[in-house]
Computed example of a mutant assay.
Amino acid sequence: MSPGSEKAYFELITGSVLFGLMGVFVDYLRAVPTGPMIFYKQFFGLISLFVFIMLTGKLSQIIPRRKKKCILLLGFINTCTIFSYFTCIKYTNFSVAILMLYTAPMYVTLLSPIVLKEKITRKGVVALVLSLTGLLFIVDMENVIAGLNLGLYGGSGYLIGIAAGILSGFSFGSEIVTIR
């Protein structure tokens, strides 16, 4: 392993740990509304990135030169992903929310033949069925049925959380397809 790659691995691990802890912080901040939480997350991230770029002197790298609409679309999809993920955490719990977010490959399998004109393979279909089956094990179906019986707003909000979790996985999958 070269000396430069050790630094890259350290940065990757650090970023992964910090991103993973984001859900724990959101779980502890249930009293804070989702909108302001997302605003401050994005705002302080942008400020940190700007300061880093200013200190390194690479300001010219942040000016988009091409595919500006794609970058704008990615920003919108990323905000939808974060909003639905945070909403899922608030109405269900962190473990359900993170598992629902990481159903994104399931949606990529569904979207890639439509958007990217890729062929769907037998392995992809099997993985999709297994993912969907696993998703049914993750979700507490008793709470979902109770939410359906009481109406969308009559229950504990678990149904809203599950819907937000499905949206977070779908929008994260959409983000992956858009990047591709």
Rank of each mutant, 00 (worst) to 15 (best):
I98Y: 10
K119V: 03
A104S: 15
N93H: 10
A104E: 08
F137D: 01
F137A: 03
Y107L: 03
N149P: 03
V96I: 14
I120P: 02
V115M: 12
L128S: 00
K123L: 13
G154T: 07
K119P: 00
G154Q: 08
M106W: 09
T87D: 01
D140W: 00
A146N: 12
K117D: 02
V139D: 11
S156H: 08
G161C: 06
I114W: 12
F94P: 15
G157L: 09
M141S: 07
L135C: 13
V144H: 01
Y102C: 12
L159M: 04
P113Y: 08
N143P: 00
L152K: 06
A97K: 05
T133P: 12
V96R: 06
L148M: 15
I89C: 01
M141N: 09
T121S: 13
V125F: 13
G147V: 01
V139G: 12
V139H: 04
L111G: 04
L101P: 08
L99S: 14
N93W: 06
V125R: 02
D140F: 05
T103D: 02
G155F: 07
L150A: 15
G147C: 07
M100Y: 03
V139I: 15
R122I: 15
S95A: 15
I138R: 08
T103R: 05
K123Q: 14
S95N: 12
A127D: 09
K117V: 12
N149K: 12
L148A: 11
T87C: 04
N149W: 00
T103E: 01
L136N: 05
L128H: 01
L152S: 06
I120C: 12
A146S: 14
Y158S: 11
D140N: 14
S112L: 05
I145M: 14
A97C: 11
T92H: 03
L110F: 14
M106P: 07
Y91G: 06
N149Q: 14
G155N: 05
I162F: 02
L101G: 07
N149C: 09
N93K: 09
I98N: 15
I89F: 02
D140S: 10
K119R: 15
M100C: 14
K117C: 04
K90V: 06
T109P: 08
I145P: 04
G134I: 00
S95C: 09
V126G: 05
I89D: 00
I89N: 00
F137P: 07
A127P: 00
M100P: 15
Y153A: 10
T121Y: 03
I138N: 11
V129Q: 02
P113F: 10
K123E: 13
V139T: 08
F137R: 01
T109N: 04
P113I: 03
A104G: 02
L148W: 01
Y102Q: 08
G157D: 10
I98F: 09
T121C: 05
V125G: 06
V125Y: 05
A146T: 09
V129D: 02
L152M: 14
D140R: 09
K117M: 05
F137H: 02
M100Q: 05
G134H: 00
V125Q: 05
L116S: 12
S112M: 09
E142F: 07
T121K: 12
S95D: 12
N93R: 07
A97N: 09
G154H: 06
R122V: 14
T133H: 06
